[in-house]
């Protein structure tokens, strides 16, 4: 009987896990369109070289809240993306960045 309960709990846990695959994919498109030009292939002529965003979340240098703020408001020579990446797009981009 104990195993039946355990099985039920595991099934429920599996069912309740949100499938983010599509959202991460969308976030990847947003990244390619808006971030990659500077963060993946920084042109040499830029005043400051933008950092790579690989391992951004793993490094824990910034909290997710800080990352959101930087995307929305910009920082240093990075422009503000507050009017173009917001709401669902920003959420999906954050999910994508977490996978990097």
């Amino acid at each position: 009987m104990r195993f039946v309960w355990l099985g039920l709990v595991l099934i429920l846990a599996a069912c309740s896990k949100v499938d983010n695959t599509k959202a991460i994919e969308n976030g990847g498109y947003t990244y390619d369109e808006n971030c990659a030009a500077c963060h993946d292939r920084p042109p040499a002529y830029l005043h400051t070289v933008p950092p790579s965003l690989k391992g951004l979340f793993a490094s824990k240098k910034l909290t997710p809240q800080q990352v959101r703020q930087i995307i929305s408001e910009g920082i240093n020579t990075m422009p503000s993306f507050g009017t173009t990446i917001k709401g669902k797009d920003l959420d999906e981009l954050m999910l994508f960045l977490e996978t990097q």
């Binding site: 002529y45 005043h47 910009g74 422009p79």
Partner: peptide, 19 residues
């Protein structure tokens, strides 16, 4: 314009002016 996200446009111009 400050929100310009294209590195080869406004950021390039402002970087050149800075240099």
């Amino acid at each position: 314009y400050t929100r310009c996200p294209m590195p080869n446009f406004c950021p390039r111009l402002s970087s050149a002016f800075a240099k």
